[in-house]
Amino acid sequence: MLRIDRQQAMAYRVAAHGLHRRDRDPAALAVLDLGVQDDARRDTADLAVLARLGDHPQPPLADDDRFVLAWSHRGAPHYHRAADFRSLVPALLPWDEADAAARLSWQRRDVAAAGMPADEAVRTAAAALRKVVRRTMTKGAASEAVTKAIPEGLSRWCRGCQATHIHDQLMRLATPLAGVALEPGAFPATLVPLRPRPGLPARPDTHAATAVVSTYLRLHGPATATEAAGFVGSTKTTVSKTMWPDDLVEVSVDGRRCAIPADALPVLENPPEPDVVRLLPPRDPLVQARDRALLVPDPAHRKEVWRILGNPGTILADGEIAGLWRSRKSGSRMELTLTELLPLSARARAAAEAEADRLREARGLTSLRLTWA
């Protein structure tokens, strides 16, 4: 068994995420193998791509028809390669009642209120959405229409909307299964039927589901089944029994038993030096790993990186999550504040400031006001 320390694992991840070099084409980025989570109001997906690309003009992902935006992993919006998305959809279908309940975060009382097992609820909602969403519709319009088409037990009173409508997470999980994606850049969230429309999956696809876990381990490894399950939104038992790849090797990371695809072992054994500085957006793929203590060992720093609301961007410097950044727009100026979590060298600070100017340019702003807090 290969034994490595945390620093070697971090160096591997920097390389696996394509942060150690600059690519030219966003479609070639390894992180798109799994998908890049988006928060359109904060340009998170575009900024994650920017951190991995060279200084070549690129259209926003929303304007590039090679990508599709959809509720996928954990019901969160992710950009995927359009060519890959259809094969991903069968991997999103829950395996059984326990798996569906985990993905929905349902307790026994929720199942009782639904009047049916959780996996049946997902399939029922997906079938109804497939019938309802035949054209582009806002989330609100689609929710209203599908609420009328599903059993009463699958709806909930929503205090925020002051209305009864389909359980939000149920709608998110069912939408891709119904052959429906999201319209990039649209406010409010807007649903778009895929053309041609794929059929509703009859059962989970073992190959597709295993590929998701394998890709997670390749990008975020070495990792455990529990961590992979956290990303998928399922349980360790489901991942271990139905989605765990065969072509893995065991690795010890500071004494913790983990796994990684066998063909990733050469890079793990001798990763490139992670001597780069990048400004990563909130929800960047690198910080989506479920072993947060490996990414950020200091508990106080973890509370700053992963907040309940309003996560900051992070400064990646020499293989460490070494700082935070926040920005706001003031007219045509971007005002950006950087905060050290770990001491940064003069070289790293200068590189971070250069990355800040790339953010300014990507957002089409004319000036930058930068402050170190």
Rank of each mutant, 00 (worst) to 15 (best):
G153Q: 02
A209S: 14
A350L: 07
P151H: 07
S143Y: 12
A82V: 03
F85V: 04
G323V: 00
A30Q: 08
R6L: 15
L104D: 02
L280Y: 04
L32P: 06
G364M: 01
A225W: 04
L341H: 13
A48W: 03
R302Q: 12
A100G: 01
V253E: 04
G140M: 03
S234E: 01
D246W: 07
D38P: 05
L19F: 09
E183K: 13
P281C: 08
D119S: 01
K139D: 08
L200G: 09
E273I: 00
S87M: 11
D284E: 04
T175H: 00
L368M: 09
R3Q: 14
P184V: 07
L341G: 09
L309D: 15
Q58F: 02
S214T: 12
S345W: 02
A114L: 10
D110Q: 05
L182D: 05
R74N: 04
A118F: 07
T136H: 00
D110R: 06
L50Y: 03
L368A: 10
V213D: 00
A211C: 05
L93T: 02
L93R: 08
R257I: 09
D84I: 05
A82L: 09
T210Q: 13
V287G: 07
H56I: 13
A209N: 03
L217Y: 08
A114S: 12
V89P: 09
A211P: 03
A28M: 07
V276I: 10
M243R: 08
K241L: 14
P271A: 03
D275G: 12
A128L: 10
L191N: 02
A9N: 06
R130H: 09
A259Q: 08
T366K: 13
H80W: 11
L359W: 13
A70G: 02
K139H: 08
P343A: 13
P282V: 06
A178M: 02
T371I: 13
F187D: 13
Q7I: 10
